[in-house]
Design a protein around this nucleic acid. Sequence first.
DNA 1: ATCTGTGAACGGTTTCACAGCT
DNA 2: AGCTGTGAAACCGTTCACAGAT
Lengths: 260, 260
Amino acid sequence: MTRRMSQARGIPEATVARLPLYLRALNGMAERGVATVSSEDLAVAAGVNSAKLRKDLSHLGSYGTRGVGYDVEYLIYQISRELGLTQDWAVAIIGVGNLGRALANYGGFVSRGFRVAALFDADPDVVGDHIAGLNVEHIDDLEAVIRRRGVSIAVIATPAAKAQQVCDRVMSAGVTSILNFAPVVLSVPDDVDVRKVDLSIELQILAFHEQRKADRMSGGPVMAEEWPEAVNLSISSDVVGSLGSVRSADPAGTGERESQ
Amino acid sequence: MTRRMSQARGIPEATVARLPLYLRALNGMAERGVATVSSEDLAVAAGVNSAKLRKDLSHLGSYGTRGVGYDVEYLIYQISRELGLTQDWAVAIIGVGNLGRALANYGGFVSRGFRVAALFDADPDVVGDHIAGLNVEHIDDLEAVIRRRGVSIAVIATPAAKAQQVCDRVMSAGVTSILNFAPVVLSVPDDVDVRKVDLSIELQILAFHEQRKADRMSGGPVMAEEWPEAVNLSISSDVVGSLGSVRSADPAGTGERESQ
DNA sequence: ATCTGTGAACGGTTTCACAGCT
DNA sequence: AGCTGTGAAACCGTTCACAGAT
């Protein structure tokens, strides 16, 4: 009874994004010899609250035991399977600059379930280098090598200007999952998944909150009246179109602040 | 009229996370000499839909002109100010391994608004190295240097095992914004913001979707009946507690483990 | 007695569609 | 005519609180 049946059609994206967190916490517990864990303990280890954790796990099926908790090894297996980690995925890294090199060498990141199968670069000086036990191939061979080695995930670590064309090429070689480190919005068809990692965006988000905290310290909830004159006119006709290719005017050399 | 007054109380987190995207698209336009842009065009450039973009911008105030669009330079200024980029933030990178080195050298990422002010490492062989124009300092001096140079954002690029203690130390030096590259959940008080970048999590999310796509190809919506026997018994009493410190029983010839 | 699994309430985010300004 | 700004609706994710299993 209570046969499988449940889960199936689609685990919420938010849940998928947390499963790796649970998996990591569970692996730590397994290493320390923990056999069973309650939703409360696992939630703490993963940094979420326990109701959320239970709901997340309930999307995979009923893998817990009421009054007891979850069997650590069993849950590890179920989550791994759900995430597709019971098979090995071949990953290609395109762009072997500082970042690409770091990624290739980042032993831990390409852990169980993933295998760096190819490295590519356009620079002839770099092609042929031996990095993390792999030869750097020339970008011209991208499609052929990707197909031959069955690469299904591409990591783009090229300069921003090359990212879209690299993206187009890996897609033409059949890749439908891309991890993008270049600071550009890639355009891809609906059947291709792109995840991006963008350092400057993360920093900017932190800066926003940092600024809020700083403001709270000093002025308290300052609001209104917080910016340079010549502002309420909004666009006011002739300003528009006058700036040409000037980069950053900084319309009042300030150093603002604001609300909150 | 229509005096400021609006916005003020908190911009939604989801909006904050997109502002850097808009900013980047706008900077590209400014460089190409575009003076005015419609919500539709900017939305396309940023990879979002135009209603969302308009709502996002409306949280900052009414900076557009009906029937016309947004003034590019003016919007750049407003978003920059909102994000706190009109001041410079001093960033410290802790851990100068492959990744830390890549981050320090990643010219583009520390762009407008950010400045790498210090590099730290625990390895005596690395301390004293000159990277991206900076001396690598010993981790023992962390608190002192952070205070002296007014660092307000710390980037943790250490091994997982050291991340929490580094986190504690930067916090004790007054840092309240952390960008964490180590694959651990940092525990911090409420007034500290942590953002994490986790390569193995991103890959696992991609693997999940990749697996779904593969499944859809072949068997169509396969469901139920997809796992090895000896499973429906769930925890079944005596299995619990029997595993002691064994690491990985591996419930089906797969080969788990994971991240880092 | 304990702890999971889940309906129901809640809060935040996205999308729709149009009123209102230029 | 064109495009922004925004209520209202739809959607998704989280939290609450408890029924139900062990």
